[in-house]
Design a protein around this nucleic acid. Structure first.
Lengths: 141, 141
DNA sequence: ATCATAACTTGCATAAAACAAGTTAATTTG
DNA sequence: CAAATTAACTTGTTTTATGCAAGTTATGAT
């Protein structure tokens, strides 16, 4: 994940996906953006899984270089930046939703999880709209 | 990926998925099973991305422990084993298909890729049946 | 003017991956 | 049937990536 030339340069569609967004930390950042509406460095940093700051910085650069996210100055605070999903990044929402569906089938459920699953099954478009607009789908975990 | 207690033990559905199948090599093994119908150690070993033998052995154990794949003796050859997807593993097919759809939108296409994408869009059930029965969907890459 | 904060960077210890070689049991070949 | 081959791994070593702690820089708040 450090070496930035596609490590093994497979010509497979699946490998391309894995290499651009499939690393554990990259994907957890994307989850934080899509599910929790996070958009700042500091927010990603205090994710439940405790990403290290150097790794976070590197993954954000990687995702930006791959065109999955973009970085813009925060107009309200000149020392802050706002990360957001590009169209390419937004297109990953269906992958995220399928992972959630899979986990829902194979992990014990609770009310919170059931609520999320139900919304995925009954209000997919609403969810996609929320993701597109950076609105949190879940409250902080 | 070595430490087998879920590394960060998140209680998030997405993190559960990532930790069980989301590692690069684990997922490439699953791709080889679902897309290319591979089922033997030696077949996984000569994948396009050149997985190292120790890593492969470890990932197969991991996937087996997680209930994604199962290992059985080959009745035809007593020094060989046959790996196959469990129901839990088969349930990952939709995730794989979404990744392929995503990559198809964002990577240049060729005839082979277009053919695969078209089949995903028009014959999803056929693909799922092929995966379930261990039939290759693509010829070797 | 001083302190705090956001977003990083740097350096070092540790863990995982890549690489190369070796092992074991079953099978094929001469 | 002894010798070479093959399938599925293990083991040891080097290289690379991650985790952790501390430091830096440019705002911004008090």
């Amino acid at each position: 994940m450090k070496n930035e030339t596609k490590k093994h340069d497979s010509n497979c569609l699946v490998a391309y996906g894995i290499d651009t967004f499939g690393d554990r930390w990259s994907f957890l950042v994307l989850r934080d953006m899509m599910l929790y509406g996070k958009c700042r460095y500091g927010e990603f940093l205090c994710c439940e899984e405790q990403i290290a700051t150097n790794v976070l910085a590197q993954r954000l650069k990687h995702l930006e270089r791959e065109g999955i996210i973009s970085k813009a100055r925060d107009p309200e605070n000149r020392r802050s930046y706002i990360y957001s999903l590009t169209d390419k990044g937004l297109d990953l929402a269906p992958v995220l939703l399928e992972i959630i569906r899979w986990s829902s089938r194979h992990l014990e459920m609770n009310a919170r999880r059931r609520r999320l699953l139900k919304r995925i099954e009954t209000d997919r478009d609403g969810i996609l709209a929320d993701i597109r607009d950076g609105r949190a789908i879940l409250t902080a975990p």
